[in-house]
Design a protein around this nucleic acid. Structure first.
Lengths: 221, 221
DNA sequence: GGAATACTGTACCTCCAGTACAGTTTTGGC
DNA sequence: GCCAAAACTGTACTGGAGGTACAGTATTCC
């Protein structure tokens, strides 16, 4: 019975857009069902209450986001064997993905929930925390891998550098909303990329032969 | 008649805390007046409706935030004549101020409003945009000033670097909320500081002879 | 064709934002 | 101490939304 799943998906999509634009409490069930073209009974057939809606919506969001990260990281690795170059490519791709939305980025559901945390139960809040931790751990692993071949030029904790990517993305989404300028996200991801370049590349932008131990001498922009 | 101003301030403080924890729509007037120890009529004597409350609350927040930035920037300039060193000191002070809150940072009202934008009128949204622009312009001016004496090591747009501070602060506030770890904000501001160091300081921490054209070789922490 | 699935319709309850407005207390200036 | 403005209180109401309950109907897949 696939039709039920379709309706469910439609409800979730409408609800997510509304929550990101107006907040959770201001998102009325009446409005969702009006847009989805169903009745209130139909809504409560799929979700036992608004809290369950939130829970399923969040799970859906986290999965979709994971897929985006998986994709850009994988494509980075496909395009370069060097972990640093691969990550720089991934960041460029991430920047592109983020700006490739017709009406600007709708927002990060995690951030949205954090600013309305008292409205949600432990389960939802735990899921937000666990997904943020998972992303941070993932970026951290990438940095460790990079450092094996490229010694960092500043004694900064890699956990903080890893965290910074999420922070920059979430922060720039807010700025893009505040200023109604979608391009800010792309530019901020690229600014973070610049930080990574400065942190790990021993050669500045202007090309010089590299006197390092490995003897690697790759082209870098 | 000073008593009115006192009540007003109490309402605004309670409302702000509630809005940052639960969102605007979920912040009930009933709850505010219960905590403030007044009646509903008392509330509507001070604010003609919830929207006016939002407007005044935001103005209050922006002023308070401006004062914090003014303070750290001024103290930075008092402690060093070099614009780069002054900014690095300001960032350190900012990191300290951000983490110096007993129950963690309550949140950024601007970010909170951006994630509930459909609930607010043009006036409120314009005020959020104008304050973000003002902060960005301010940081940009500082960077221009630094660049006069310290040439940047990467061809990055200073507007983006300036924006990045707000992004990192807002993003790290979200992360500190998501993970219930107030220290993330301080660490992220310090990570941004590291970026500034790498961008403008010509000598990295681990001393190696640099085969660059300028021949500059300064001691740096 | 039948059973599970996917809904609709109706009726009802509670809570809260917001409105309206008359009445009362408190405060500060003279 | 008086008085007027300021700072409230009390009461009563409207409307909309979340949520419940449950019987009935249509659709879909096997």
């Amino acid at each position: 019975m696939r039709k039920g799943a379709e309706t469910r998906e439609r409800i979730l999509e409408i609800a997510e857009m509304s929550v990101l634009a107006k907040g959770f409490a201001a998102t009325s069930i009446e409005e969702i069902i009006a847009e989805a073209g169903i009745t209130k009974s139909g809504f409560f057939y799929h979700f036992k209450d608004k809290n369950e809606l939130a829970h399923i919506m969040l799970k859906r969001y986290v999965c979709a986001n994971d897929r985006v990260f998986d994709d850009v990281i994988e494509r980075g690795h496909q395009l370069s064997d060097d972990p640093l170059q691969a990550f720089l490519i991934s960041l460029k791709l991430l920047a592109e993905v983020m700006s490739d939305l017709p009406n600007g980025h709708p927002g990060c559901l995690i951030a949205c929930i954090c600013y309305q945390e008292r409205q949600f139960d432990r389960e939802v809040l735990n899921l937000t925390a666990r997904s943020v931790e998972a992303w941070n751990a993932r970026f951290r692993a990438i940095l460790d891998n990079i450092a094996l071949e490229h010694p960092p030029r500043d004694a900064i904790d890699f956990d903080d550098v890893a965290d910074m990517l999420s922070c920059v993305v979430d922060g720039s989404i807010i700025m893009s909303k505040a200023l109604n300028d979608p391009s800010r996200i792309e530019r901020q991801v690229m600014a973070f990329r610049s930080f990574i370049k400065l942190l790990f590349l021993s050669t500045p932008q202007i090309r010089v032969p590299m006197p390092n131990s490995t003897g690697i001498s790759e082209t870098v922009n």
